[in-house]
Design a protein around this nucleic acid. Structure first.
Length: 375
DNA sequence: AGCCTTTGACCAGCG
DNA sequence: TCGCTGGTCAAAGGC
């Protein structure tokens, strides 16, 4: 294992991408409440709506801002069949690789990131009752259908691109030649209209209506679902890692003879910061009726919140036929979810972590995203 | 009954 | 060689 750790460190040391944080004024205003407490997702959403800085920004604007922002991409995670927004910057020197890959400060950055958690499909996110229970027509200024359409369309773009490139396994960086998702139209509403016309999601509102009724009374609680990726996982171990407040969890794919494992790491705040995949699925995803119920996978039992940190993929589930060895792992950071920006070393990260307001901001936004994804 | 998580023990690599 | 550390095993219990 130390060997593995060593490998990871070597492989991910100085060259893997880091993140550039685009301006993020509207979100910052969200965290100005002086309570110091982390509100629940819905509380946060309410705060979002009532915040003076955000009242003039529609949800579509926020989405468009995220998508159009220079670092924003929606990399497709072949293991999870999901998309995440990822932004990169060119290789800031990092001193030791693996552990360097911490999420960027949420609150410190300035971009209205709207992040789809790993394993949570955009449609899943937007279909979630937690999002739709806000109101049929969101105060953001666009309908949930529109939001769904936009995210789904963006996701589809990435998916088609990634699927065309089976070698893709480490969530390409800006430093690579991989084309990124083109920014949304300068006019987000126009973009939405185009997407709506091409990507009808009529079921979304049906789901909304049903879920509103069925789950209205359910608490908006963030549960730990590291990656709802369509595969079934069995937790086979948990280890307290030195220097980490929270244990690292080890999962195996439950498919017979499938060698895939994943390691879920947490930040000091108990939030997931890294999901490391090892090896390659030698099977297709289980059919939907054999997948975990309720949008959960085998990890649903973990406690705590979901933070979107970095995703490390060792191996390529789409690259089944080639039987390549998948020793390499390459962490990929998600913008707005890392404690560390370019050139940030351990020392400066600790300094950031000491920044209590920023830490709380991160927690709040994390919960926001988590809430949307899990409700 | 089957599958899951939990958790302590064990093992191997590294300094 | 030894202690530390991380990864895995496997028994126990829960759902």
């Amino acid at each position: 294992m130390a060997a593995e750790q060593g490998k990871r460190s070597k492989l991910s040391a100085p060259t893997y991408p880091t993140i550039t944080l685009p301006p993020r004024p509207p979100i910052d205003g969200l965290f100005q409440s002086g309570s110091g407490l982390s509100p629940g997702p819905m509380t946060l959403v309410s705060a979002f709506f009532s915040d003076p800085d955000s009242t003039n920004r529609s949800f579509s604007q926020l989405l468009a801002g995220a998508m159009a922002s220079p670092g924003a991409k929606l990399p497709y995670n072949p293991m999870d069949d999901s998309f995440m927004e990822v932004g990169f910057e060119n290789g800031g020197e990092k001193n030791s690789g693996f552990k360097q890959n911490r999420p960027l400060n949420l609150g410190v950055g300035n971009s209205p990131w709207f992040t789809v958690p790993p394993g949570l499909s955009p449609s899943g996110l937007l279909n979630s009752p937690g999002l739709f229970c806000l109101s049929p027509q969101s105060p953001f200024g666009i309908s949930h259908q529109q939001a769904l359409a936009q995210v789904t369309a963006q996701a589809a773009l990435v998916q088609s691109h990634v699927h065309a490139q089976p070698e893709y396994q480490t969530l390409s960086a800006a430093t690579s030649s991989e084309p990124s998702i083109p920014p949304s139209s300068a006019n987000p509403e126009e973009t939405l209209q185009r997407m709506l016309s091409s990507d009808p999601q009529s079921s979304a509102m049906e789901c909304l209506e049903a879920s509103q009724f069925d789950k209205k009374s359910q608490p908006c609680v963030a549960v730990d679902k590291p990656a709802e990726d369509g595969y079934n996982w069995r937790k086979y171990g948990q280890k307290q890692i030195k220097g980490c407040e929270y244990p690292r969890s080890y999962y195996k794919c439950t498919h017979p003879s499938c060698p895939v494992k994943k390691i879920v790491e947490r930040s000091a705040e108990g939030l997931i910061t890294e999901i490391i995949y090892k090896s390659t699925h030698n099977h297709e995803k289980p059919p939907p009726n054999k997948q975990p119920k309720g949008g959960s996978d085998g990890n649903a039992n973990l406690q705590g919140n979901l933070e979107l940190g970095s995703l490390v993929v060792a191996g390529n589930s789409n690259n089944l036929s080639e039987g390549k060895n998948h020793e390499s792992t390459q962490p990929v950071e998600l913008p707005g979810f890392s404690d560390c920006e370019e050139g940030c070393d351990e020392e400066s990260r600790e300094e950031r972590d000491d920044d209590e307001p920023n830490r709380k901001r991160r927690q709040v936004l994390n919960q926001f995203v988590i809430g949307l994804g899990n409700l």
